[in-house]
Design a protein around this nucleic acid. Structure first.
Length: 654
RNA sequence: GCGCCCGUAGCUCAACGGAUAGAGCAACGGACUUCUAAUCCGUAGGUUGCAGGUUCGAGUCCUGCCGGGCGCGCCA
């Protein structure tokens, strides 16, 4: 039991004499914001006083009088309007640290009633390279899997990949028309990626060409609209008019930018003799790609064979990236897996009167929703809502989960509202369905992050850049060591890979997941402040102490020495170590890894202060040296475990 | 037009209805013959978009307004 849980349990006695159900009030026991208010504070006397019609301080006094915490805390203090401030006795901190030292779980208990989770995350389209938009789902989803598993829950992770869509029509078309056989034999993944990009480029060219007149027209309309509005507004427009004017101006700028980018793209193709020849020869590429896709879906033997040939290569490609990110899945059941369940899913919904026909499409109309959820198009094709429903059904049958978490972009919020509402209509009551949404990665202009030419940013390039920057810093730091450089070129490279990828992941995880964030290399790859590097550095410094002092860590852990918390830095560090479990609970509560990063940053900061103020190897007495060594080791273990739960690795030296 | 999300220090962001709203970066001033200075200690920086309301207590909940983002039937 954590200290917090124990305090709640002790407080529930006296609280139970005043109210029937103290559970809600006990939620108001929490860590103090300021050390001068003790380690923990109980805030329930104020609402309780109101409820009982008594002065809150009297209520607090009555609770404190009936409270048996003499063995655990210093005498509780009542402050302000009725806060009860609790300071844990150093003796008890010492006991608990000794317990944590011999516990592989570092004193964090497993949950009493484990739940079964399915976590759906990452879900790239596998026929094309992963891009910046996949980072958040992948990194947050993986962290949640690790966190819930560690807490004792049963977790099934499932990567719902896009392996059945138009992208495969594109590769099929590319393979048929542009394949370089020797390149394909030598490196199929790279060749397929090239084919995808080529077909994409040609399709974009023709689509753009067709779109240009419309865009031009819209630009003219917008110019005219703005001119009209300006004329009508006069010299002193009211607020509403001014707002409309701003919007018109923005629309116009957007139109201009759009056309400019498109023209540049078209010009790039036309300037390239090979590409422009291809573009002319494959004028009908858009329809042809759709036809290839349709043939695949209709069961065409040759397209099916090629799809089966391509898919493993596509999986190799994404798995290579997952390998670098240190992310794994229990299942990778993509769209294709559910194809033969779609028709039955729709039929079932019709039969049960949940879905109806409207304008030739099959729809589920939902209470309080302006638009229905479409599950079959007029032309008979299924939609992603259909696949998601079929997937949900399969997961319920196969995994019987208590909860399914969808770690998906917030822009799909309405889709999930529809999906979950339909699931309830279908009678799926026992499962908790959660859209764990996250904000968009934006560029410096506040728009979704794109390269200067308007393309999405590749994920691998991002990883490479992170590692490149880390390598520079690793080298600089090693060169600057007091006794000269210590690391070989190979060690430096391995450290840079871990440090760089850690920085990238941590930048994402430390952000409140619900807000958009502005991407910047400098920020994402920063190596100081609240970053993975700071934690990795703290860890490496601990390890360095053990190496320098030639300390037998196993022996230290097996027979933990008495810990001395007499200086503020030592006490603060000890308390921080014991709060690991609280941080994990808080992170799990709202699926927010940033609660864990915030904790780890606080822990590492406590350690850095301790490191400055408390000599370990040269401690004044051997007893103190042993005590401090154990604090160091516990810190390192919590940092390593905490980072591990975020999917981030430590390094022994850096 | 309708719906959802957001607005906190110069910048990027934290803050599970609780006390004097916290960090990092940037700025300024200190600390390396001493276990890794990727560090530490300190200074400065705020009408939490605005106006009401609920509450013993509001950045947090409610209403309105201002500003921004996203979404809105046959893409995923």
């Amino acid at each position: 039991m954590s200290i917090l849980a124990e305090l709640k349990s002790r407080l529930s006695g006296p609280l139970g004499k005043l109210v029937e159900d103290p559970a809600e009030l006990l939620e108001m026991v929490r860590p103090s914001q300021d050390p001068k208010f003790g380690d923990y504070q109980a805030n329930f006397a104020m609402p309780l006083g109101k409820q009982l019609g008594r002065p809150p301080r009297d209520v607090a006094a009555e609770i404190v009088a009936g409270l048996d915490v003499g063995d655990l805390c210093e005498p509780p203090e009542i402050a302000g309007p009725g806060f009860i401030n609790l300071r844990v006795k150093d003796d008890r901190l010492v006991d608990r640290l000794a317990e944590a030292a011999v516990d592989p779980r570092l004193g964090v208990p497993e949950v009493e009633s484990p739940r079964r989770f399915v976590i759906d995350f990452s879900a790239p389209n596998v026929a094309k390279p992963m891009h910046v938009g996949h980072i958040r789902s992948t990194v947050i989803g993986d962290a949640l899997c690790r966190l819930f598993r560690f807490l004792g829950h049963e977790v099934t992770s499932d990567n719902h990949i896009g392996d059945w869509g138009t992208q495969f029509g594109m590769i099929l078309y590319g393979y048929r028309n542009f394949r370089d056989p020797s390149a394909y034999d030598a490196a199929p993944v790279a060749e397929l990626a090239r084919l995808y990009r080529l077909v994409r480029q040609l399709m974009d060219y023709h689509e753009g060409k067709a779109q240009l007149p419309q865009l031009g027209e819209r630009l003219e309309q917008r110019e005219a609209a703005l001119a009209d509005q300006l004329a009508a507004a006069g010299d002193t427009p009211d607020k509403k008019t001014a707002k409309a004017l701003r919007k018109a101006e923005n629309d116009l700028t957007e139109s201009r930018k759009e056309i400019e980018q498109l023209e540049a793209k078209l010009a790039a193709v036309e300037a390239d003799p090979v590409l422009s020849k291809m573009a002319i020869e494959h004028a009908g590429i858009g329809e042809a790609v759709l036809a290839e896709t349709a043939k695949l879906h209709a069961g065409d033997a040759e397209n099916r064979r090629l799809w089966e040939e391509f898919l493993p290569h596509c999986l190799d490609e994404i798995n290579r990236v997952y390998g670098r990110l240190n992310v794994t899945f229990d299942h990778t059941l993509g769209e294709s897996f559910y194809q033969d369940r779609l028709a039955a899913t729709v039929d079932d919904l019709i039969k049960r009167g949940i879905a109806t026909t409207s304008d030739g499409a099959i729809c589920v109309f939902l209470e309080g929703q302006n638009v229905p959820m479409l599950i079959r198009k007029q032309d008979g094709a299924f939609l992603y809502a259909t696949t998601d429903l079929a997937t949900l059904g399969y997961r319920m049958e196969t995994f019987q989960p208590d909860a399914i978490l969808y770690v998906v972009d917030h822009r799909q919020a309405m889709h999930f509202e529809h999906l979950f509402a339909t699931a309830r209509l279908m009678g799926m009551e026992g499962v908790r369905l959660e859209h764990v949404s996250f904000g968009t990665v934006l560029g410096g202009d506040g728009r979704p992050f794109k390269t200067r030419s308007g393309d999405t940013v590749g994920l691998e390039g991002l990883l490479d850049e992170a590692v490149r920057r880390a390598a520079t810093i690793v080298a600089e730091n090693d060169d600057a060591k007091p006794k000269g450089a210590e690391l070989s070129a190979e060690e430096r490279a391995a450290i840079a890979e871990r440090v760089g990828i850690a920085a990238l992941k941590y930048a994402d995880l430390s952000q409140n997941r619900t807000s958009d964030y502005v991407f910047s290399y400098d920020k994402m790859l920063a190596m100081n402040g609240n970053t993975a590097t700071y934690m990795q550095y703290a860890y490496a410094r601990v390890r360095s102490i053990f190496a320098k002092g030639d300390v037998d860590v196993e022996a230290l852990r097996a027979a933990p020495p008495a810990i001395d918390l007499s200086t503020p830095a030592e006490r603060a560090l000890g308390l921080a170590i014991l709060r690991f479990g609280e941080a994990l609970d808080l992170a799990a509560l709202d699926y927010r890894p940033n609660q864990l990063t915030a904790y780890l940053f606080d822990l590492a900061a406590c350690y850095s202060t301790f490191f400055e103020q408390c000599p370990v190897l040269k401690a004044p007495t051997d007893a103190l040296r042993q005590s401090r060594l154990l604090l160091c080791d516990l810190t390192a273990r919590v940092i390593r475990k905490g980072l591990e739960l975020l999917g981030i690795e430590v390094v022994e030296r850096m």
